[in-house]
Design a protein around this nucleic acid. Structure first.
Length: 947
RNA sequence: GCGGGGGUAAUCAAGCCCGGCCAACGAUGCGAGACUUAAGAUCUCGUCCUGCAGAGGUCCGAGGGUUCGAAUCCCUCCCCCCGCACCA
């Protein structure tokens, strides 16, 4: 029988027995779940990691007597499926070949032009794969999201009305990267260029001219307004004149276009040549000083407003441009500029910053040898260098009015806010790099003004979310800082889209609810989804959810209002209260900053305190062969492919062995290749050994029994912390090593101990390799299924530590013997082992006491020991052995008599192992030609090898 | 830049919070031996350097420091990974 036969057999058995269909019942409940996968394809190895870890926990908790619920569902919300279906419909070869690789025959391909077909097709595939993985899932509760599932649709609608009633969903404006052709925001994945780019906020400074119109200059550094000396304008550019928000602004034509998209009232009126503006004067904001307009070549009409305010003290561009114009000052006459006035323009120091003199821009231009305003790249570098230190370490100088003495970091926001309030400035948004939509249209920034938001920026909501987090268990605990940071950092989340599958926003049907936003509290839906199937669709209404999830109203009343049967309503309420709150949700670490945090927010926004989530587990991203899995790297693997190659048990074991914590665990194919044989061998061993053996009760049987207890305790400790790699090592690899030792020591094993061992090993290993363990369990007389069996509790205090320590003493001694025999070489006639004399045990007690009291400093310990008359009597041998005792502190907790009787009892075994007589003495008891006996220390016997 | 996680012997990877049983768990790989007709599987031993007595030396990204004692604590620096959103 091959491992795949075994896997199929037990998967069928679990399904037939409905082994994992969870109902309220005996034992404490444990509800764990995972984010449902998006059904646009097959699962990959990364899914396998997260789902395996969840299944490990589910199976472990069952072994510990918990009534475990592990449900699973499918996510279809959002645009990718719609987009991909569109590509299939248009016959795009790339998309079609992706589907072909997932096993879709060409004849089926046309059907994938319809998004609905994806939703019909993939959930079944995903479920089949999870079942093949051995997932212990209650499949009755599965569902699909979006309006394709009216009951889920109603649930999401209820959730949003509920949040809105608490004023947590609000309408607002927001800058987004926008495709003018598609008429929608352009997410990172919808871009062929400019991934990661986001709208950058510029402060638009307004400079009033004598005729009442404004020259407007965009800046990223509003705090430098105190150093403004002039404006730069390109004489060869035609600037637009436009009415903006009721004022007359002059800016580049493209800037006016942008402003029009950004919720400004814009009315274009005409143009003005840059050269006509040179030499005029305008009043600079904040400093309220008249400054001249000077010509430059470095301004870019497509960047900002095409007009630049000049701060030559801190902006290298401005400094160099100013030097340029002063050098060619006579030429400035042709703009009608007064050369003396130009010469009179001087940089004004405004920021005090570590490592820089009063004029950083001048300094860096001189240091880098920048000569001209046309050295664009070097000027950019210079700008970054100044900004880095200036922003984080700089302080505003005394000439900066009420901002004097303020750190630049703070002053920047304060100055901007003040100018916005006084009307001297406005805002505009711009992309710092080009972004191109998949439809090949360059993106712009648009202010969307009727967008709906989940108000994650709301202080009161944040406070509740923090409270929830503080009460949660996190695995690993080191992820807590990340969560805390995210909760603080989250701002209002735009929760609606115009496109894609999903649920319509109940009160504003123009919008669909976005895919992360419809997935925040659906774990509650699992508790009732199978019961809800029996309720008529039209009865699934807010009153029903209000009652089931919030306890509003009496069941009879809700029944009358909705038409749902009373007993169904009551059953749902009971089920929800039984399973909720969820105990654990497990995902990849990438979901910390969105989904898992949203999950906290929406729970505290909807449910009462007692129903908030209790725990999150996060894991890294799977590496294959040490590299991040990707199609381009050639190491991408679907879960199905991995199952085909190795089978479920091996795959699971290999995933568990990959590593714990937030690091990316490595999938080691070599380990996987060697694991199938190992499992088969173990199954054969268990079947072969069960029921055989002696009934003699020997010390070594007590040892192995104690090891079983200790292993079980450690195993549980690791599983409780989701340290599955460590649990696998302890509960399997270490225990297998101990078994080999036991068999070597015992010869014929003890029947009762072996029965105990086989049962425990099967149970512990079943967390990782459930199929082969069911097989082993059933063939070694286990009752029922191992998946539903109970692992006994171990009281750590009851473990026989003496037996373990005594055996460790023997193992250490054997290592020493091997080393000595190996070193001296040749034939060995006999081995003599000497345990330490009584007085050394006395000294050991003194040493231990001294260390416990005052640390391990030799002088102090020695003094303490020599204060004892009995020790002093032993004279000059004492310092040496005290030093050795300090160096060689052992953790074994054994007495003199225990050491001696253990070694005496094992002399025969040692003789057999080393193939020569082994005699055990107490120091001084026997001949000792090489004077080795005196080296004996308590728990570190001396050795004399006779050649 | 900000926030988070890391850098350990051929590889993967424990230990670090709570300093000493740490030449540093374990697995994989590699080497030797046993078993076997052989291969495989399995078992034993070994796998930083030196050593004919259980030891010594060097070592846990680099450099300093604290301590009787540091992979573990403190400081500085270097490098890698993840996230910084409106998207699954």
């Amino acid at each position: 029988m091959t491992s795949s036969d075994i896997e199929r057999r037990w998967q069928r058995a679990w399904a037939e027995a409905r082994a994992f269909e969870a109902e309220p019942g005996d034992g404490p409940k444990y509800f764990l779940n995972v984010p449902y996968p998006y059904v646009n394809g097959l699962l990959h190895l990364g899914h396998a990691l997260t789902y395996s870890r969840t299944d490990f926990m589910a199976r472990y908790k069952r072994l510990r007597g918990f009534n475990v619920l592990f449900p699973f569902a499918f996510h279809a919300t959002g645009t990718p499926i719609v987009a991909a279906a569109g590509r299939v419909a248009r016959g795009e070869e790339r998309q079609i070949s992706i589907l072909r690789q997932m096993g879709i025959p060409d004849a089926e391909m046309p059907r994938f032009g319809d998004p609905q077909h994806w939703v019909d097709h993939f959930p079944g595939e995903v479920r089949a794969d999870i079942q093949r993985l051995g997932g212990s899932v209650d499949w009755r509760r599965s569902f699909i999201t979006t309006s394709l599932n009216p009951r889920y649709d109603a649930f999401i609608g209820w959730q949003f009305r509920r949040l809105r009633a608490r004023d947590l969903v609000r309408r607002g404006r927001h800058p987004v990267v926008w495709c003018p052709k598609d008429g929608s925001p352009v997410g990172d994945h919808d871009r062929i260029q400019g991934e990661g780019e986001m709208p950058q906020e510029f402060t638009v400074l307004k400079f009033r001219m004598d005729d009442g119109s404004f020259l407007v200059a965009a800046t990223l550094r509003p705090e430098t307004v105190f150093g403004q000396t002039n404006l730069w304008i390109d004489p060869d550019v035609d600037y637009a004149v436009a009415e903006v928000d009721g004022e007359t602004w002059i800016a580049s034509a493209s800037a006016v276009e942008k402003l029009a998209e950004q919720a400004h009232a814009v009315n274009r009126k005409g143009t003005v040549r840059g050269s006509d503006l040179i030499g005029r004067e305008a009043v600079a904001p904040m400093i309220r000083r008249r400054i001249p307009v000077l010509p430059s070549t470095f301004t870019d009409p497509d960047k900002g407003t095409g007009i630049v305010t000049s701060v030559p003290s801190d902006a290298p561009d401005d400094w160099i441009a100013l030097q340029d114009i002063k050098r060619g000052v006579e030429g400035a006459r042709r703009w009608g500029l007064d050369p003396d006035a130009v010469r009179g323009v001087e940089a004004i120091p405004i920021i005090e910053s570590g490592g820089w003199g009063p004029l950083p821009a001048k300094e860096i231009c001189e240091r880098m040898g920048i000569r001209s305003q046309d050295e664009r790249d070097r000027l950019l570098e210079a700008k970054h260098e100044i900004y880095k230190t200036g922003f984080y370490t700089g302080v505003m100088k005394e000439n900066c009015g009420e901002y004097a003495g303020m750190p630049v970091e703070v002053a920047k926001e304060a100055i901007k806010a003040a100018m916005l309030a006084s009307g001297e400035a406005s805002l505009m948004y711009e992309l710092s790099n080009r972004v191109v939509c998949r439809c090949l249209t360059p993106s712009i920034v648009k202010i969307v003004s009727d967008q709906w938001f989940l108000a994650y920026g709301d202080a009161g909501w944040k406070a509740l979310a923090r409270e929830c987090l503080a009460g949660m268990d996190l695995y690993p605990e080191v992820s807590r800082k990340q969560f805390e940071h995210v909760l603080g950092w989250l701002r209002d989340w735009a929760c609606t889209r115009e496109l894609g599958l999903g649920t319509r926003l109940p009160w504003d049907g123009k919008w669909m609810i976005e895919s992360l936003s419809d997935s925040t509290i659906y774990m509650a839906f699992y508790t009732i989804s199978h019961l809800l199937d029996d309720v008529p669709e039209e009865a699934v209404r807010d009153e029903l959810f209000d009652h089931v999830f919030l306890g509003v109203g009496a069941a009879e009343k809700v029944s009358r209002a909705t038409g749902a049967p009373v007993d169904a309503i009551e059953a749902m309420r009971r089920s929800f209260l039984h399973w909720y709150p969820m105990d654990l949700r497990i995902s990849g670490k990438d979901l910390i900053q969105n989904h898992l945090s949203f999950c906290i927010f929406n729970h505290v926004g909807v449910f009462d305190r007692g129903l908030w989530p209790r725990g999150f587990g996060v894991n890294g991203w799977i590496l294959v062969g040490g590299a991040k899995m990707s199609k381009s790297a050639g190491n991408f693997m679907t879960m199905r492919a991995a199952l085909d190659r190795w089978g479920a048990d091996v795959l699971r074991l290999t995933l568990a062995n990959g590593g714990d914590g937030l690091d990316d665990p490595n999938f080691d194919a070599e380990f996987a290749d060697s694991t199938d044989d190992r499992l088969a061998a173990w199954l054969a061993f268990a079947v072969e050994t069960m029921g055989k053996g002696t009934d003699a009760e020997r010390p070594i049987d007590a040892w192995f029994s104690a090891v079983l207890d200790a292993t079980l305790a450690d195993f549980c400790g690791h599983c409780d912390s989701m340290e599955f790699r460590a649990a696998l090592k302890r509960g399997y690899f270490d225990l297998q090593r101990d078994l080999r030792w036991y068999l070597r020591r015992a010869g014929e094993p003890d029947r009762a101990v072996m029965e105990r061992f086989i049962a425990f090993q099967t149970q512990m290993l079943s967390v990782f390799a459930p199929h082969v363990c069911e097989e082993a369990w059933s063939r070694t007389g286990g009752k029922g299924m191992v998946s539903l069996s109970r692992l006994p509790d171990v009281d750590p205090a009851s473990i026989d530590r003496k037996a373990i320590d005594a055996e460790s003493l023997l193992i250490d001694l054997m290592e020493d013997l091997r080393e000595v025999i190996g070193l001296i070489g040749g034939d060995v006639r006999a081995v003599h082992v000497f345990t330490a004399a009584d007085w050394k045990w006395h000294v050991l007690a003194l040493v231990r006491a001294a260390i416990a009291e005052g640390g391990a400093r030799f002088d102090d310990v020695m003094k303490a020991v020599m204060a004892d008359p009995d020790a002093r009597r032993m004279g000059k041998a004492v310092p040496r052995i005290v030093q050795r005792m300090i160096d060689l502190r052992t953790s074994y907790d054994l007495t003199v008599d225990e050491e001696r009787s253990k070694l005496a009892a094992e002399a025969a075994f040692l003789s057999a192992e080393f193939g020569c007589p082994v005699r055990v003495w107490t120091e001084g008891e026997s001949e000792d030609p090489m004077g080795k006996a005196k080296q004996a220390l308590p728990l570190k016997p001396a050795i004399y090898v006779e050649k």
